Amino acid sequence: MKAPTLHTERLTLRGPEASDFEKVATFFTDEERAHGFGGTLPRDQAWRWFASTIGHWHLRGYGFWTVMAKDTSEQLGFVGLWNPEGWPEPELGWVMFAQAEGYGYATEAALAVRNYAYTNMGFTTLTSNIVPGNTRSIALAERLGAVLEKTYENIEMGTEHLYRHPSPQELGL
């Protein structure tokens, strides 16, 4: 399945393309930022992660969108829906690149993806799985109205906090 293109006031969210990989590879060399995704990865393993995000669209019918600035076409990060084998349920996740932090892009993109998942894809609930200590992601989840539901052992990531997002009904959708 090809990812639909979503638009917000400042952003375009499109399906991942081969040209997106360089920023992904750079992201996975940054210990602080990659920590929330299991840690740094060598280039070949970053490629496998990136390829799996593309395959996720074909296997599940949803996945990560590439977040682009409308005014400059700069690649800002990835936001999307993730549910690989072993995950407890579908997750709303995000990766923002260093130059894109602090501008509200992650919030804007995550709201667009969540609303699309609820109104166009039939999702009735979403979570965000966040490793303990990832204060930026916790703050974003809370800005989105998600609440800590439990701590659990993620098959891939180890101990994680599961934040539950408001349902479509709670959001008035």
Rank of each mutant, 00 (worst) to 15 (best):
E108W: 13
S137P: 09
G133Q: 09
L111T: 07
G61I: 04
A3S: 04
H165Y: 10
E108H: 12
F27S: 00
Y62E: 08
N83S: 07
P16M: 09
R60T: 08
I138H: 14
Q169L: 05
F78R: 14
S137H: 07
Q45A: 01
P88S: 03
G39E: 10
Q99A: 03
D44C: 03
H165D: 00
T107W: 15
G36I: 02
T159M: 13
H56L: 10
F64V: 03
L81Q: 09
T119N: 12
Y116Q: 02
A34L: 05
N154K: 14
L173Y: 08
R143V: 02
G36F: 09
S19D: 13
Q169E: 08
T125F: 08
E160F: 12
A110C: 11
H35C: 05
Y163E: 05
P84Q: 01
K2H: 11
I155E: 13
V147M: 13
S19R: 15
T8E: 05
I138N: 11
A112D: 01
A100Q: 11
L162P: 06
R136V: 02
A141T: 02
W47M: 02
E153P: 13
R43A: 08
N115L: 01
P42S: 03
N134T: 05
Q75N: 11
R10L: 05
A110G: 12
H7M: 09
Q45G: 00
R60W: 07
F27T: 00
A110K: 10
G38Y: 03
P166F: 04
A46T: 00
L92N: 00
R48W: 13
E153Q: 09
H161P: 14
L11R: 11
A109V: 11
D30F: 05
G122N: 00
E156N: 11
F37W: 12
H7R: 13
D44V: 08
G38H: 05
N134R: 12
A141V: 02
A100Y: 15
E156R: 14
E101A: 15
A141D: 03
N115V: 01
R143E: 04
E149P: 10
A139H: 14
A112T: 01
D30V: 00
T40F: 07
L76T: 03
N134P: 08
R43K: 15
Y103Q: 05
S19W: 15
G39F: 10
G77W: 07
L81Y: 06
W47D: 00
Y105W: 13
S167F: 02
E101S: 10
H165C: 01
V147F: 15
Y152A: 13
D71Y: 14
F27G: 00
W94K: 08
T159Q: 15
A141F: 08
V131P: 14
K150H: 11
Y105N: 04
E101K: 15
G15S: 04
H161N: 15
